[in-house]
């Protein structure tokens, strides 16, 4: 029984994948794990004549260290990333974000390349990658380019990708030993649930003073949102409960949530305030080596 009518292409190289994407234009879709695309095709949200599967491109599955950068192939599965010793060594907050996503059957298929390319506002890997100061490597018909993670998603389900562009890797800088990060997420259940809200925090702490901060909110705006006022408020301060509580309130004010079945706008703001406070406190403790 065919559930939707498309021709499946399995390119054997990135170049071929880009060429096919440009050739078919809007009549095609790229597929990574398929956990989003196949559902959209079935529901009719998307209609395409061609599906170009990227999962077979072995060179896009590598997780390695490139000098001072952690290179995560766009087609590495979420399970592979969450289990990679290198990820735990360089940026454990990413594994922390991934391990609670969906269920194991989905993490065995889904990829960060797919997560970014879909541009779904409640995704978990884009905000934490933004907090890490990461970037996205894009291959296209005209060559390769690197885009800052924070500039990648433009609007819900809309990214900087043009026809024929594919994500080949996610790159995360090796973090200074004086820094720490944390991913905090609230869901209605502990497993197999989409985020009501998430907050990713990254801090650098030197001699008891926060010298740099990034706070990124997920599921409370059209794209991963930087809580700029929140982050600015902690820089120059010593980590502490009241500093982080005040910063949480600023993040809540900066969020742009909608009301939907997972929570009302006001509820999500209240959740963001708590998550931001927790994420900052946890990131600070990690930066100062008080906890792992």
């Amino acid at each position: 029984m065919a559930f939707c009518d498309f021709k499946l292409h399995k390119p054997e190289s990135v170049t071929e994948a880009c060429r096919l994407g440009r050739e078919f234009g809007r009549t095609c879709a790229y597929m990574s794990g398929g956990t989003e695309l196949l559902v959209d095709l079935r529901s009719g949200r998307k209609k395409v004549a061609h599906v170009i599967a990227l999962g077979g491109l072995k060179e896009l599955r590598e997780i390695r260290r490139d000098g001072d950068t952690l290179h995560i192939g766009a087609q590495a599965t979420l399970s592979e990333i969450a289990e990679a010793p290198l990820v735990h060594e360089v940026f454990p907050a990413l594994a922390e974000a991934i391990v609670t996503m969906a269920g194991v059957q989905i993490r065995n298929l889904a990829t960060m390349g797919g997560n970014f390319s879909c541009g779904v506002p409640c995704s978990d890997t884009p905000p934490i990658t933004c907090a890490a100061g990461g970037s996205i490597v894009v291959a296209g018909p005209d060559g390769e380019r690197e885009v800052a993670a924070r500039d990648f998603v433009l609007a819900p389900r809309t990214t900087v990708l043009n026809p024929g562009d594919i994500v080949t890797a996610i790159r995360i800088p090796v973090q200074p030993t004086t820094s720490g990060a944390s991913f905090q997420r609230f869901t209605m259940r502990r497993g197999s649930a989409l985020a009501v809200a998430s907050v990713s925090a990254w801090l650098n702490v030197e001699q008891g003073v926060i010298t740099a901060a990034r706070v990124v909110m997920g599921a409370v705006g059209p794209i991963p949102l930087f809580a700029e006022n929140c982050a600015a408020s902690v820089v120059g301060q010593a980590p502490g409960d009241s500093v982080f509580a005040d910063a949480g309130a600023l993040a809540a004010a900066e969020a742009q949530p909608i009301s939907d079945l997972r929570g009302s706008e006001q509820y999500r703001r209240d959740v963001v305030a708590v998550l931001a406070r927790r994420a900052l406190a946890c990131a600070a403790a990690r930066a100062e080596g008080r906890t792992s």
Partner: peptide, 13 residues
């Protein structure tokens, strides 16, 4: 050898 949900896997895979 790994658990997956077969409703989101194309047969061709």
């Amino acid at each position: 050898g790994e658990p997956v949900n077969s409703c989101v896997v194309p047969a061709a895979f």
